Amino acid sequence: MHQATSTFSPPAIWRRLVLTLDMIKFEHSVFALPFALTGALLGWRSIGYPLDGMAAKLAWIVVAMVGARSAAMAFNRVLDADIDARNPRTKARHIPAGLLSRTFAWGFIAATSAVFLLAAGMLNPLCFRLAPVALGVVFFYSWTKRFTPLSHVVLGFALGIAPAASWIAMTGSLNPRILWLTAAVTLWTAGFDIIYSCQDYDFDQREGLFSLPAKLGLANALIVARFFHLAMIGCLVLLALSLGGGISSWLGIGVVAALLLYEHSLVHANDFSRVDAAFFTVNGWVGMLFFGFWAFDILSAMPGLHLLGN
């Protein structure tokens, strides 16, 4: 009886929640969130910068993003637990190592999915109707590595729908022009996921898992990653042209291009010792700096706001 009480006591539940947030790398929400917020600000600009309800919408967008990503990451960890246990790189993850139970993880998935659905409902009816589709997309990714080397692209699309969803949250409808940002985020994510998955080249081949490095080899996979990132820059250029980006937006694209060049300079087919810097550090800056430049451009054009000192 004492053990049951301690297991379900608030400190024990809090400890497992903290472990779960560590398991899903909660802090990496920074990857897609800046692009989602960029989509929201672009949508806000498109409807004339209404201030009524703006803060609340942004808050619910953040809640929806964090909820969806948290549910998806926890789902991935549960589904891959047996695979992770056999992989020397991932066998210390929380579920294979016995730090968290699958039951608790499933409860976390249910709770964060409910938070996402609530946030979508608070935004507008179209967001709520599309919310189950979005959850289906982010959950579906976890199966793809079992049957297609294009799993990296599916992961990219799971993040790429965020800016389009944020546009819908702000405007209540979808404008095809925002899909250039969806395409850019899809290609960006697919590219850096290919780089990261190169670490598991030997394991993926031995286990018969599908990844582009396992399919094409390390050198060719890195070439594909470079192509994806080059195509990402092309999509950002088309986004700026279609939505009338200003000087700051173009500078933001240039900064992203420079960061991606640096990222690819860190990894080589025979040296992945700096892959964590390429994956975590550089890509975190890509999202935040892109948002900073584009947000400045959007806000500086807001009627009555003179950020540029004109």
Rank of each mutant, 00 (worst) to 15 (best):
P11D: 13
F210W: 11
G107H: 08
F227R: 13
A269V: 00
G67A: 09
R177M: 14
F228Y: 13
V78F: 07
R274A: 15
V255Y: 01
L308R: 08
D52Y: 07
A295P: 02
D276A: 09
A64T: 01
F8V: 00
A12T: 08
A231C: 11
R274N: 14
M122E: 14
V267W: 00
N310Q: 14
R274P: 03
G67D: 05
L123G: 04
H306K: 12
H268A: 13
E263T: 00
F227V: 14
L209E: 04
H2P: 07
G53R: 13
T148V: 04
L261H: 00
R45K: 12
F31Y: 03
G245A: 12
G48W: 15
R102H: 15
M302G: 11
I109H: 06
L100G: 04
F26I: 13
M54W: 13
A40K: 02
M170I: 07
H28Y: 12
G67V: 05
A92F: 05
A32Y: 09
I61A: 06
N220K: 12
L100Y: 03
A184V: 11
L19P: 03
F116D: 04
A258T: 00
W106E: 07
A97Y: 09
W250F: 11
S248L: 12
G217E: 03
F128M: 13
R77P: 06
I95A: 08
A32T: 15
F31G: 00
F157E: 03
R86Y: 10
L260P: 01
G287A: 01
P125Q: 07
C235S: 08
L305Q: 10
A295H: 02
L33M: 10
I195D: 01
H2F: 12
D82C: 07
F192P: 03
V185H: 04
L159V: 09
S173T: 14
A74T: 15
A74Q: 09
W188H: 10
